[in-house]
Design a protein around this nucleic acid. Sequence first.
RNA 1: GGUCCCUUCGUCUAUCGGUUAGGACACAUGGUUUUCAUCCAUGAAAGAGGGGUUCGAUUCCCCUAGGGACCGCCA
Length: 464
Amino acid sequence: MKIVATRFAPSPTGPLHIGGVRTALFNWLYSKNKGGKFYLRIEDTDKERSKEEFKNQIINSLKWIGINYEDIEYIQSDKIDEHINVANELLKKGLAYKCYCSNAEIEEQKKRAKQKKIPYIYNRKWRDMSENDAPKEFNPVIRFKSKIDGKSILNDLVQGTVEIENNTIEDFVILRADGSPTYNLSASVDDHLMSMTHIIRGDDHKINTFKQIQIYEAMNWKVPSFAHIPLIHTIEGKKLSKRDNASTLDDYSKIGIMPDALRNYLLRLGWSFKDKEIFDLDESIRYFNLEGIGKSPSKLDVSRIYSMNEYYIKNIDENDLFNQLKTYCETFKEAIPDLAQIKIKNSLHFLKNKAKTLEDIYKNSKFLLNDDVKIKKEDKKLLDETAIKIIKLFIDDINKLSDFTRETLEPIINNIITNNKTNFKGVGQPLRICLTGSKFGPGIYDILCALGKDEVTKRLSQIR
RNA sequence: GGUCCCUUCGUCUAUCGGUUAGGACACAUGGUUUUCAUCCAUGAAAGAGGGGUUCGAUUCCCCUAGGGACCGCCA
C-alpha cells in the first residue's frame, strides 16, 4: 500500500485567502488522518505576477494556523526543465503537436464564436497539418492532443461520478511560444514527481482534472485520486477572491481571532461529523474524512468565527490563553509590561468572560496595563457631588481595611448604599469610572481586587 | 452561449425510505448576576416547485426554476 501523500499548491500571485487555507487544511488533515505526508508546493511559474512577499504570506499563514508541511519546499519553477522534457516526449510520441496559429488568428476565432453565440474551442487546425506548411516568422506553441471521441469519467471522492464529453475539452497548450510550460503540464508533472496519491482542491479545477488525467494516461503514469471540494462563497454567494475584505488570515489575527478557533471554524465549513461542533487538533485529525464533505458551496459567516473564538477563549487553558494574548498584544497593540503580566494572568478568569476576541480581553485589561485613567467628558458629568462624596466615604472605609477582598469590601459598599439611600449603581458606577475610565467593564469587585488597595486608593484620591 | 456542479431554518449542518425534520451560530423573550457581559431556560425559524417510483419520500429518478464554477500562451 502506497503511503498517502497530499499537497497544497498555491500560486504566490496574491495573498492566501481563507478558502485556500481551508483547502490546505483539508489536504493536511486527510494525510495526517491516513498517517501520510503533506507537502507545500509554490506554483510560481507566472513570473510576472509571482511575488516573494506573497510566498512569505502564504508560508506565514500556514504556520500561524498550525498546518505544518514536510521540510522539502517545492518551488515549481525549479522543475521547469522536467516539465519541458515531458512536453517534448509527448511531442515525440505524437501525443502533442506544434500549433502555428497566431494570436490574432485565435482572437479572431474567439470573436466569431462569441458573435455566433457558439462555445469557443480551438479548432485543432494544426493537429494533423504538416510542419512543412509552418510559417517561419514565429515560434509555435505545443498543444496536447486531447481525446475527441467518447466521454471521460472522473470518480471524484467528493463529487461522485462526473462525466464529460471529450470533444468539449480542447487541445490545450502545454508549452507556450516562449517555450515555458503551462499550468496543466507543470501541475501534472509535479504531482507525478512528488508521488501524490490524493489531490484535494477547489472544484474550480474540475475541468483541469480532465486535462491532467489525459497527460497522466499519455505518459503511462499512475493517476492519483481526486477530490474536488466546493468553494467558499461570500455572503453574496460568489466565489471568495483575494479582493474580498476580511479574507486573509491576517485580517482575523489582527482582531484577535485565535488560530485554533479559526481552524475549527474552517473545518466545520463544508464538512461535518454528526452533530459535533468542537474539534481539538487531535480530534480534527482523527475524525477527518472525505465522506463528510458536502457538495454545495458554503457561505462565510463571520459571526460564527467570533462565537467559535469566544468558545476557545472560555475553554482553553489559561496559561495558553495568556501566552496568546501576550503575543497578540506585542504584535498588534502594546507589549504587556512585566509588572502587569501577573496581574493580568490572575485576572484572566474574569477578563475573558466579556470577550469574544483577544482584542476584547486587551481592552478589558487596559485598566491594569497603565495607571493613568482618562475619563471621558460625558462620563465626568456622572461624577456629581454625591458621587464624589461616596468615593470619599469609600476611601475612608477601605483605609481601615487590612484585608482587601470581596468579602471585606462587600459590607463596606452595602453600608454606603444604605447610608446614602442609593443603589449599587450609585456606588459602582462612579467607582468604575474613576478606576478604569469607562462605564463598562469587569465587575466592580473584580476591578477592586485586581488593582489592590494601594492602587485603588491612589486612583480614587486623584478625583475631586 | 456551451460544459459541469449544487439546492434542508437567515448561516453552518444532521438525517444514509418510516423522525413531533435534530444540533450549532445569529435572532427574540424570560431568569440569574445589585452595571455591561457571561451563564441558564424558552421561543420563532427549513426540505425551491412540479411530476414519478414506493404502503410510505427531505432521502431514489425525471423535469422546471434558482444559484455557482469553468470556458487563457493565469494558476
